[in-house]
């Protein structure tokens, strides 16, 4: 049975697409699946450094598509995890070096070999984005609880529909429970209400992600990383398992107190 192509996208840059791709992909491979990560961000490749594989690149995605090398020789085997491979983006080419049709053909070749093909999409909604979604069966949208990121995510949901990719799943990244508690950050429910797509996972804002990226080692290898734990859960949900959501917004004493008396600033919640 051919595998599944999942595109990880966001619209806005810098919300954590590449980190999400690296972690979800590694977690799926650790669960025993054969996984290929594809960096579709041509000209701005980064998945290789997040994975710590930047020194092993010989050929890239564009060279495979142009027939300059075999697909097999461009795939880089991960250094820590069996069953995990990376197809790096070209760094010195333009995004229009390939077409959506060529990308689709490539993914069709990849799913013969892999159970999951995770496509790390570039930011934006132009050519690179259309390439990244061309062969996708499913989409994961990464956002943060900020106005600009949620707005772009909404736009992406509309565009995916136009390209017949329905029911994308949502990952809300960089949640800060302390700020949510103070009423200074939109909470998970707020973002879900606005975007109205199924929630795949919630990632806390976590310093271990920065450290992991510094080392080129996905955070899921760090047993103390809460973000890593959240990504492991997401991987299991991608497989179709029913995994309960981590409690990020603790219901402390303050919250209980708040519910008892109507606060001035919660009056507008009813709309």
């Amino acid at each position: 049975m051919p595998g599944k192509v999942i595109v990880i996208t966001s619209g806005k840059g810098g919300v954590g697409k590449t980190t999400a791709t690296a972690n979800i992909g590694t977690a799926l491979a650790l669960l025993g699946h054969k996984v290929c990560l594809v960096d579709a961000d041509i000209g701005l490749r980064n998945l290789d450094v997040v994975m710590g594989l930047e020194n092993r690149i010989v050929y890239d995605l564009v060279e495979v598509i142009e027939g300059a090398c075999k697909l097999r020789s461009a795939l880089i085997k991960d250094k820590r995890t069996d069953n995990l491979y990376l197809l790096p983006a070209a760094q010195t080419r333009e995004k229009d070096a390939i077409s959506p049709e060529q990308m689709k053909a490539l993914t069709q070749e990849l799913v013969q070999e892999f159970e999951y093909v995770l496509m790390d999409s570039p930011a934006g909604i132009e050519h690179g984005f259309r390439n990244a979604i061309a062969g996708a069966d499913e989409a994961i949208i990464v956002t943060t609880p900020e106005v600009s990121a949620v707005r772009d995510a909404d736009r992406i949901i509309g565009l995916l529909e136009a390209y017949e990719l329905y029911e994308p799943k949502l990952v809300i990244n960089r949640i800060r429970p302390d700020m949510i508690k103070r009423g200074d950050m939109m909470n998970i429910q707020d973002v879900r209400e606005i975007l109205a797509i199924p929630l795949l996972g919630v990632i806390p804002d976590d310093q271990t992600i920065v450290v992991a990226t510094n080392k080129g080692e996905p955070a899921i290898f760090n047993p103390k990383s809460k973000a890593g734990m959240a990504y492991k859960n997401i991987a299991r949900r991608v497989k179709g398992e029913d995994v309960p959501f981590m409690a990020l917004e603790q219901n402390g004493l303050v919250d209980k107190f708040k519910r008892m008396i109507p606060l001035p600033f919660s009056r507008r919640n009813s709309n």
């Binding site: 609880p145 900020e146 106005v147 949620v150 707005r151 909404d154 949510i180 103070r182 009423g183 200074d184 950050m185 939109m186 909470n187 707020d190 606005i194 606060l263 001035p264 600033f265 507008r268 919640n269």
Partner: peptide, 22 residues
């Protein structure tokens, strides 16, 4: 301070602005 002030939370501002722009 929030309890005794009438100031709207920035979370609610974010939500309202998002709704409008969307």
């Amino acid at each position: 301070t929030r309890l005794f002030s009438k100031e709207e939370s920035s979370r609610q501002r974010a939500k309202d602005r998002l709704r409008l722009v969307l």
